[in-house]
């Protein structure tokens, strides 16, 4: 198989699969990412996000299927792939016993940067991630989590990679630092760097141009955050304010056309086939089922609702098979 001729494609996989013994970690995943796009991989822990990234970086060999990074076959030319990618993993993986500048020097020269080019590259990477000169000579292990994360990003972009793989880059840092980090990613993307990022923070999907939702090794849906909210889940969501009787969930589930009901704070979210209920009709159905004192409001789906539903319906489908 040859990569698609489209020069605007930075990452492409076809039926990419990875097994560990009998366990299928990544199950025939096919997708493509355009140049300069921020593509988010979302899904619960153990869904196969990291395994996919590790295959694309050449850290793991695919069991079957194909993958291309910048048009380079990951199975045939892993060394060529390594030249064009930057990688940053969920656990901080720089040398904690070296200073910040020593880490950057090492990784820079690993990619063949020397002398002035190395110094300039380091200056630029520092500037990009917003680190000031004070951090340069600090021992990396003594930095705060957020600063470390930025140093790691500086290391990953030092050699100006065309494709950046970020494996849970924001786990373990505070919300403000996360926002700042995403701003940096957005800047990079604006300059043409393709970013493939995994996260299990569902709210971070909003920062991605496109999102792939992955669960149990399967890619369930791909789309923009808007498409996810408006099209991908073919259900309406209603917010119910009701007295919580112990059997309220099972009673509501018995109503024809109700796909799922789940607690959401002190309210309930009810998922129903699209267009089946108006608020009034649903309210009357609910009253018929015996739940009294209920208020119903149709709400706009949030990404979290959609993902939870997608994960649930996929597991149900798997179980039915």
């Amino acid at each position: 198989m040859e990569p698609a001729g489209n020069r605007n494609i930075a990452i492409e996989t076809r039926e990419l699969t990875r097994r560990f013994g009998k366990f299928v970690a990544v199950d025939h995943i096919s997708f493509s990412v355009k140049k300069g796009e921020i593509f988010g991989f979302l899904g619960p822990n153990g869904a196969g996000k990291s395994t996919t990234i590790r295959m694309l970086c050449g850290l793991l060999k695919p069991t079957s299927g194909a993958g291309y990074v910048n048009g380079i076959d990951i199975a045939r030319e892993p060394e060529a792939v390594r030249q064009v990618i930057g990688y940053m993993s969920q656990k901080f993986s720089l040398y904690r016993d070296l200073s910040v500048i020593e880490n950057l020097r090492f990784f820079g020269s690993v990619y063949g940067l020397r002398g002035k080019r190395l110094d300039d590259g380091i200056d630029e990477a520092f500037w990009r991630v917003g680190l000031d000169g004070g951090a340069r000579n600090r021992i990396t292990g003594e930095l705060s989590g957020a600063i470390m994360q930025r140093v790691a990003l500086a290391c990953a972009i030092l050699h100006k990679p065309a494709v950046l793989f970020l494996d849970e880059p924001t786990s373990g840092i505070d919300p403000a630092a996360r926002r700042l980090f995403w701003a940096l990613i957005q800047d990079l993307s604006a300059e043409g760097v393709t970013v493939l990022v995994t996260t299990h923070f569902l709210d971070e999907a909003e920062f991605c141009q496109r999102v792939g939702f992955i669960n149990s090794g399967r890619l369930i849906a791909i789309g923009t955050p808007r498409e996810f909210k408006e099209e991908i889940l073919n259900e309406d969501i209603f917010e119910l304010t009701t007295g919580f009787e112990h059997d309220v969930l099972s009673r509501l589930m018995k109503i024809a056309g109700v796909a799922d009901v789940s607690y959401f704070g002190d309210k309930l979210h009810l998922f129903a086939d699209r267009g089946r209920f108006t608020t009034e009709f649903l309210l009357s159905e609910i009253q018929k089922s015996g739940c009294a004192g209920c208020a119903v409001k149709k709400i706009k789906p949030r990404l979290e609702d959609v993902f939870v539903r997608l994960a649930k319906s996929q597991s149900a489908a798997v179980n039915n098979n």
Partner: peptide
């Protein structure tokens, strides 16, 4: 153990 190996492995080092 310190997971720095990953960073080495994604680099062009042989």
């Amino acid at each position: 153990e310190r997971r720095t190996m990953e960073q080495i492995m994604v680099s062009p080092i042989r």
